[in-house]
Design a protein around this nucleic acid. Structure first.
Lengths: 199, 199
DNA sequence: GTTGTACCGTACCGATCGGTCGGTACACCA
DNA sequence: TGGTGTACCGACCGATCGGTACGGTACAAC
């Protein structure tokens, strides 16, 4: 990936987050990046590819991290906690990209839309598999794993509207707080000890 | 409110939910409503007022309902449960309006934006007051009432992306499930009996 | 020294954007 | 019968939309 293209993607994410995908014109992107029409389109192809790349990058990143966590975590509760920390950390670090994704992903069309939706489903499925596995082992309440997972994902995903992207300490604390609430609410056995901090 | 204006608002909400506020042109709204330019603007004033009215109506409705519930509920846990049911019911019944609101409220400008944000804050504050009151009485964990409330609101608000607007039975069951998880996770005393179904 | 290629600016395209305006048809009331 | 208000149409506005064509420049390879 060329450094210019990377610069353009960053500027586009910030611009789309501020004004919306359809609300932001290419003219404004020109002056934000410091390139004129011809140069811009030499690098990006078209406008929709910017939106696609913004969503794809973040989603693929989260799918990759969560797959790794799910493969290594000692048990399901710890796994959920680690995945939650990773998610909230990523949302806080890439708040503009997530803002763009959640607001405008359905402005995508055709193959690009299909791929982004598939990535999003894959990510939710990782969570659901972990939850279902825990429920099968008698750890979690067996009722409605899909709805339960959508609930905790909602807690985190909604945070892009209010979270402050400053310190990772704070994001980890919030992630742990939500995990504590969710796990206490969902565990059949008494409260487990929190896992040691990582990374 | 004239019946024509109401018709236009409904069509606009559906159209904006499909294509986004900036993505949907007035030409499409014309043919969806069955009126031409002149007639349309005779009723609506301008495009932004449509967006404003869509958000304002739902938010004022929720503020009103929750204020009433908070005044009448026997205790804080029951209050949260009733407010949660009312919220999820409203989201399911007005899914298109909430989709428009969450995606495009910040396309509003000036006074209209200020008012909508104020309504949204007022609504969150109702929840936070209930939670803080419960925490002060030793019912809930006292840590971070604002973050805790934003969490449960996230569970519900995120649902506009996946909930099916068919039966109210299902929405009440989902609301209760989330409340059970949240309350179990947050209550200091053991699990309380669920309140009787209402309305 | 010439050719290829990556990069960039300028000029321009047709389409569509949100919005305005003059005018008409009709109902209601005096 | 004349006057007033409401609902509506259709033509039109300047601005902006995303995108393209094309020429020029800088530089590396041969």
């Amino acid at each position: 990936m060329s450094p210019q293209r990377e610069r353009i993607l960053k500027a586009a994410a910030a611009l789309f987050a501020r004004e919306g995908y359809h609300g932001a014109g290419m003219a404004r992107l020109e002056q934000e990046v410091g390139l004129k029409r011809g140069a811009l389109y030499h690098h990006i192809g078209n406008k929709e590819s910017l939106l696609y790349e913004i969503s794809r990058t973040q989603l693929e990143h989260m799918v990759g991290i969560s797959t790794r966590i799910a493969a290594e975590a000692p048990d399901e509760a710890a796994c959920l906690r680690l995945m939650a920390r990773a998610l909230l950390r990523n949302i806080a670090d890439h708040r503009v990209e997530w803002t763009v994704h959640y607001r405008d992903f359905n402005a995508l069309t055709g193959e690009r839309l299909r791929h982004v939706l598939e990535l999003r489903d894959r990510y939710a499925e990782i969570w659901q598999r972990v939850y279902a596995s825990g429920a099968a082992r008698g750890l979690f309440q067996p009722a409605e794993p899909r709805v339960a997972v959508l609930g905790i994902l909602g807690m985190f995903n909604y945070s892009y509207l209010w979270i402050e992207g400053d310190g990772r300490l704070d994001t980890d604390r919030i992630a742990d707080l939500y995990c504590d609430i969710f796990l206490r609410g969902v565990l059949l056995a008494p409260h487990p000890p929190p896992p040691p901090d990582e990374e």
